[in-house]
Amino acid sequence: MIVDVSSQLFLKRRRLTSIDPMEAESAKPKLAAMKENFGREIRVFETTGLSQTSDVASSSTTEEPDEFYEFTAEDYYRLLSTKKEDKFLKTRKIREAEEAARRSRITKAIIRVRFPDNHTLEVTFQPSETIKSLVDLLMKVVAQPDLPFYLYTTPPKKQIKDMSEDFYSAGFVPGAIVYFSYDLPKG
C-alpha cells in the first residue's frame, strides 16, 4: 500500500502539544502544590485539533486493488495465533477468581477529561474509586462550578449517569478519555 506524505498527516491521531523544558521546570512546584491540595496527580494539556481533516482526507483517498481484500493463508494463521487458548468451560468460581486476579494487578486508573476549549485534564485514581470522585474533583477545578455539566464517552456518545459505579466496572481501567460538556438550555 502506497500512501503519500500529505495523507499521512491526517491519518495520525491528534497529539498533545509539547511543553518548553524551561516551562516544565517552573511548573513542577505548581504540580506539587496541586497534588498536595487535591490529593492526587493532576496534569493539564492543550490538545491541538486538525480543522480540515475530512476535506483533505476524502480527496486524497485511493482505491485498493481487489487482491488487497482477498483472504490469504497468512491472514488465517494470524487469526489462529490470536485466538484464545482456553477451550474448556469454566465454573463461575474459577471465572470470579480470574477476574479478581486481573483486578488486583491493576493499581491505577488514568482518566483524561477533555474540555470543549481543547484542554485535557489528566488525573490518576484508584480503580476501586467511584465516578463520583471524578465529578467532585471537577467541581473543584472547573472555572464555573455553579453551572450544570455532564460527562460522556464516545463512540457512540453515551452520557455517564451512574456516579456510584467504580472505574473498573465502568471500563475506565487502565485508562479512559471522558468528555466534559456544560448542560445549558438551548438558546
Score class of each variant (00 low, 15 high):
residue 1 M to P: 04
residue 1 M to Y: 10
residue 2 I to D: 13
residue 4 D to Q: 04
residue 6 S to I: 15
residue 6 S to H: 14
residue 11 L to D: 01
residue 12 K to R: 10
residue 12 K to D: 02
residue 13 R to C: 08
residue 14 R to G: 05
residue 15 R to Q: 09
residue 16 L to V: 01
residue 17 T to Q: 12
residue 18 S to M: 01
residue 19 I to N: 08
residue 20 D to W: 02
residue 21 P to F: 02
residue 21 P to C: 00
residue 23 E to A: 10
residue 27 A to I: 11
residue 28 K to V: 15
residue 31 L to A: 09
residue 32 A to H: 14
residue 33 A to W: 15
residue 34 M to H: 12
residue 35 K to D: 06
residue 35 K to A: 11
residue 35 K to M: 10
residue 36 E to S: 08
residue 36 E to F: 01
residue 36 E to A: 15
residue 38 F to C: 04
residue 40 R to I: 03
residue 40 R to A: 03
residue 41 E to I: 09
residue 44 V to A: 13
residue 45 F to I: 00
residue 45 F to A: 05
residue 46 E to K: 12
residue 47 T to S: 13
residue 48 T to F: 14
residue 51 S to G: 13
residue 51 S to I: 00
residue 52 Q to H: 11
residue 52 Q to M: 06
residue 54 S to R: 14
residue 54 S to I: 11
residue 56 V to H: 13
residue 56 V to P: 09
residue 58 S to P: 03
residue 59 S to K: 14
residue 59 S to C: 15
residue 60 S to M: 10
residue 60 S to T: 14
residue 61 T to K: 15
residue 62 T to M: 08
residue 62 T to S: 14
residue 64 E to V: 03
residue 67 E to G: 13
residue 67 E to N: 14
residue 70 E to S: 12
residue 71 F to A: 10
residue 71 F to L: 14
residue 72 T to L: 04
residue 72 T to Q: 00
residue 72 T to S: 10
residue 74 E to H: 02
residue 76 Y to C: 07
residue 77 Y to V: 04
residue 77 Y to F: 09
residue 79 L to M: 12
residue 79 L to F: 06
residue 81 S to C: 09
residue 81 S to Y: 10
residue 84 K to A: 08
residue 85 E to S: 14
residue 85 E to Q: 13
residue 87 K to L: 01
residue 89 L to R: 08
residue 90 K to D: 00
residue 91 T to I: 01
residue 92 R to S: 09
residue 94 I to G: 10
residue 96 E to L: 12
residue 98 E to W: 08
residue 98 E to K: 12
residue 100 A to C: 06
residue 100 A to V: 01
residue 103 R to C: 10
residue 104 S to V: 08
residue 105 R to F: 03
residue 109 A to I: 06
residue 109 A to L: 02
residue 111 I to R: 03
residue 112 R to P: 02
residue 119 H to P: 01
residue 119 H to K: 13
residue 124 T to K: 02
residue 125 F to W: 02
residue 126 Q to D: 11
residue 126 Q to R: 00
residue 127 P to D: 04
residue 130 T to E: 14
residue 132 K to Q: 13
residue 133 S to W: 04
residue 136 D to P: 03
residue 138 L to C: 07
residue 142 V to P: 03
residue 144 Q to K: 08
residue 144 Q to N: 12
residue 150 Y to V: 01
residue 151 L to H: 10
residue 152 Y to S: 05
residue 153 T to N: 03
residue 154 T to H: 15
residue 154 T to G: 11
residue 156 P to G: 02
residue 158 K to R: 13
residue 158 K to Y: 06
residue 160 I to S: 01
residue 161 K to A: 06
residue 161 K to C: 07
residue 161 K to Y: 05
residue 161 K to W: 04
residue 164 S to R: 12
residue 164 S to N: 15
residue 165 E to T: 09
residue 169 S to Q: 00
residue 170 A to G: 07
residue 171 G to Y: 01
residue 178 V to T: 02
residue 178 V to S: 00
residue 179 Y to W: 05
residue 180 F to Y: 11
residue 182 Y to E: 08
residue 183 D to L: 13
residue 185 P to Y: 02
